[in-house]
Write a protein that binds this DNA or RNA. Structure first.
Lengths: 193, 193
DNA sequence: AACGTAATCGAACATTATGTTCTGAAACGT
DNA sequence: ACGTTTCAGAACATAATGTTCGATTACGTT
């Protein structure tokens, strides 16, 4: 039996609002958008908007959740054995390559930094989990938290640069650059001698 | 002859508004602040505020300009020969250490990212200037722009982490971590063989 | 110490966006 | 075809923005 079918009106309204918001982000940037803009574009009544979302940030995050789910499926499908940060980063560059406008809206300079901080947090949690086991036990070393924060924010930094500069680099190239820049420093810390 | 003396009322008003804004940022974050909050705290008339600043962002940037000037004096005074990125970063960590609240307001998570983007841009311009000469001429390599962007954003990332986590690391320690993480990758690119 | 100037105050005002409430109409799933 | 849920649209209260203006106060200068 299929899960409780959801009213089509609800689906249409939510999708319409999400799409309208993403369009508007690419046009004028998240901060400049008003709820009025969104409901005009989506052709939705004012009271309807507030029946579904608290505010425009809530709407943005609902779109982000959808993307996250989709990325996780994408990631699961292709990764087999490699659990290093570089597998995750490559997948994310590739996923962004395939959904360029969506990623630009959420992670580009137009997107405000709300979604961006969520993406970084997501990476941070994933990486911290996978790095903690591998870290040497020696004291006097960098805390896992700084190390993880550094890797995650470096990735975000390259991703946004890539999205904002319409550069012609491929996802694979971007991941190579990411590794070239970040891996040497990280390896020196993980394997002290 | 001293430069044309500026009306004390102007100085007091501007300083009062800047201080009020910085206090409020530490209390509730830049985004949640209204112009009304600022003029109430500073005890300044509404029309007076708009006689000096366009909006709260304009006010924030005026405070940032002041900080930048002060940092440049600080930097000039102590640096002698070293023109590598690591001299600049050490000075900035030290300057932040000496003006912790001010830096927290401008570069912490409460500060919105307006000032932060200005700081990063400032670093970017400085670094690009100093790195371009040293880059190897080989093709097939990372563009100076990505490399510079990476260094600048890595620094910003560690700085904000440091400010937001009330950590007990010293400025010198933070700069060591910064070098440990960033320098190996950068050196490999700058000296290919 | 007194003068002319310039900054400030505070109130009034138009404008814009927010978020809530309500009623009738339309679309939905069954 | 039926009962239920969602939607549109309008009305409303609230709050912040940015401008204008006349009266008052503090300023630098002489």
């Amino acid at each position: 039996m299929p899960q409780k079918a959801e009213d089509r009106r609800i689906q249409r309204t939510r999708k319409g609002l999400q799409d309208a918001l993403l369009e508007l982000i690419l046009e004028k940037g998240f901060d400049a958008i008003t709820v009025q803009d969104v409901i005009d574009r989506a052709n939705v009544g004012r009271s309807t908007f507030y029946a579904h979302f608290q505010d425009k940030e809530d709407l943005l995050l609902s779109g982000f959740e959808h993307l996250r789910t989709e990325f996780e499926r994408f990631f699961m499908e292709q990764t087999v054995t490699d659990e290093s940060p570089w597998a995750l980063s490559l997948s994310m560059f590739q996923h962004a390559e395939g959904h360029r406008d969506l990623y630009k809206a959420l992670a580009g300079k137009q997107g405000g930094n709300v979604a961006l901080m969520h993406i970084q947090k997501y990476l941070y949690v994933y990486l911290l989990e996978h790095l903690k086991e591998q870290l040497p036990k020696k004291k006097k070393n960098i805390s896992p938290e700084i190390l993880t924060h550094f890797i995650a924010s470096s990735f975000i930094s390259l991703l946004t640069w890539w999205l904002n500069n319409e550069s012609s680099y491929s996802a694979a190239q971007m991941n190579d650059y990411f590794r070239q820049l970040v891996e040497p420093g990280v390896n020196l810390i993980m394997q002290p001698e």
